[in-house]
Amino acid sequence: MAETKATLAKADGAATRVFAPIVLLALLALAPTLSNAVDNPFLIRLFTRAVIFAMAAVALNVVLGYGGLVSLMHAGLAGIGAYAVAILAFHDYDGSKFVGIFPGTGNLAISIPLAMILAGLGAAITGVVSLRTSGAYFIMITLAFNQMLYYFFVALQKYGGDDGLQILGSLDFFGLDVSKRATFYYFALAALTVETAFFALLVESRFGIILRACAQNERRVVALGVPPLRYKVAAFAISGAAAGLAGAMWATGQQFVSPSDLSWVRSGDYIVMAVLGGMGLVWGPVLGAIVYVLLEAFLPAWTQFWQAPFGVVVILIVVFLRGGLLDLVGAKGARGNGGGRG
């Protein structure tokens, strides 16, 4: 009897952890076909936005849902990635050199990894300071660092300052032209798939188990002889690099990046997406991002003041649906380890 129960739970776990995300990503792959069928290019733009937000929210959720770290700087980290791509494209277009040394490039095979490295480095440096603290301090410090990045890019007059930076040249990935909408969509979706699969493996690895243990009881982790700070900084850096990837995709897709993409409100939106989808699963935020983008697109059709009802939805979810939307379908383990008191 107990055995059947265990097998059932295991099957259920496999269904929510493996099959459900595959189905979801496969459904997402149909978006361009659907968009063509109903002859509405708006749909593909909508889903591109959802896929990119999903990349950032999945990145955030690794530290939020599994590490219990409420980071409010993921919009800033994504912004580093976005500006890396845009600035390289800027120098590629006008033939000048970055700080007079490095030439620009429009090849995403170079600029995306660079964007990820820079965002990961930014996360590691800010992480060393912020992760020494915990709980409320961590939240407020990451919020402050987000604004630091925001003001930094506002102050970069050479790269558009407040107005943002337009990507004028063409971008390609090893010769693959990503300026076509459907091509770019599949490109972004492939990146999201790789990212989700990578994190799904990561959270089940030894590294992921230590990260989760840190969220549950850091003292015991120390007692076991594992230094938690090192693991948390590493997780934050990896998460930051993935956020940088999302930012790089954002800049590529929009052909534009502006400081408003780095606003702390966007960081809050990512948290909402992660919680909305369910923090206990790696792919939960993908669902959250889709729902968020749909709400954002269709609420304004009913009322000009759509943010108030959206805010009420957020409040109601926090009050009632503590495991996110996945709670509604009764998925196991939808509630993450995260959000513990510090």
Partner: peptide, 20 residues
């Protein structure tokens, strides 16, 4: 409640306040 819930609920309140 956890800090995460507090962040979310006050974030929701900001959206409501701004729109009101």
């Amino acid at each position: 409640r956890s800090h995460l819930d507090q962040v979310l609920v006050t974030f929701g309140l900001i959206l409501v306040f701004n729109d009101v």
